[in-house]
């Protein structure tokens, strides 16, 4: 570790595709580019996000707080060295 003994955190992203309206905030403003827009459609006809690089998630929760649809949340992932995504 380069800064004291801070541990690199890992997060797990939960996405609710059903409520998503495809605004793209989470994808655009994720600082580590975990998310990307899916090519799939949800029932409303929007492209929801998916975790393209789940292992890069550092649990900053910015996607959770910027999501205007309350459709993403992130939890700490202690077990896995690398983050994973659940649908």
């Amino acid at each position: 570790m380069f800064f004291n003994n801070l541990k690199q955190l890992h997060g797990k992203v939960y996405i609710n595709e059903t409520w998503c309206k495809g605004c793209g905030f989470c994808v655009q403003f994720c600082p580590t580019n975990v998310l990307d827009i899916s090519s799939d459609y949800n029932a409303k006809g929007y492209h929801p996000p998916y975790a393209k690089n789940p292992e890069k998630c550092h649990d900053c929760q910015y996607c959770q707080i910027i999501c205007p649809e309350f459709s993403i949340f992130v939890t700490r992932d202690d077990e896995n060295e690398r983050g994973v995504t659940e649908k």
Partner: peptide, 12 residues
Amino acid sequence: WCPGCGIGSEVN
């Protein structure tokens, strides 16, 4: 609220 509206983020 519409897609891209800021109100949801504020409520969060």
